[in-house]
């Protein structure tokens, strides 16, 4: 397994304004245009700090995605009670009868 499979986390990159806009879109965050440059600069400093980790020699060290070291945690295929519909929809910003209601999206 190579580390380059997760490009966002493994490549040294410059945090530019277009990149900030793209990430904001992917995260569905609204960043006022007037703030974009400032956010780019701040994110750039954060990423640079995290990139300090690249100085570490990790040759021969397997990537770790779970710190517990546990393997094979399973549950048996036994049904457990679900929530009632009222409970399930209680936090929904919008609902109608049995459903959550959202602005129409068709793909």
């Amino acid at each position: 397994m190579t580390r380059h499979l997760y490009p966002l986390f493994s490549l040294r990159m410059d945090i530019t304004r277009p990149l900030v806009e793209k990430v904001a879109l992917l995260a569905r965050l609204e960043i006022p245009p007037a703030d974009a440059d400032r956010v780019a600069a701040q994110l750039g400093r954060i990423v640079t700090m995290v990139e300090t980790l690249n100085k570490l020699d990790t040759k021969g060290v397997e990537p770790l995605s779970n710190p517990t070291g546990l393997v094979d945690a399973f549950r048996s295929d036994e049904p457990r009670p679900s929530l009632s519909r009222d409970e399930a929809l209680a936090n929904a910003p919008d609902k109608v009868e049995m459903f959550l209601r959202v602005p129409r999206v068709v793909e």
Binding site: R80, S82, S84, M98, L100
Partner: peptide, 22 residues
């Protein structure tokens, strides 16, 4: 399967909407 991939809700087709959730 009898249940979903990561929780104990039933894996069943055709139930009333939003009743097999947790």
């Amino acid at each position: 399967t009898r249940t979903k991939l990561f929780c104990g809700c039933a894996n069943k087709y055709g139930a009333d909407p939003n009743t097999l959730v947790c």
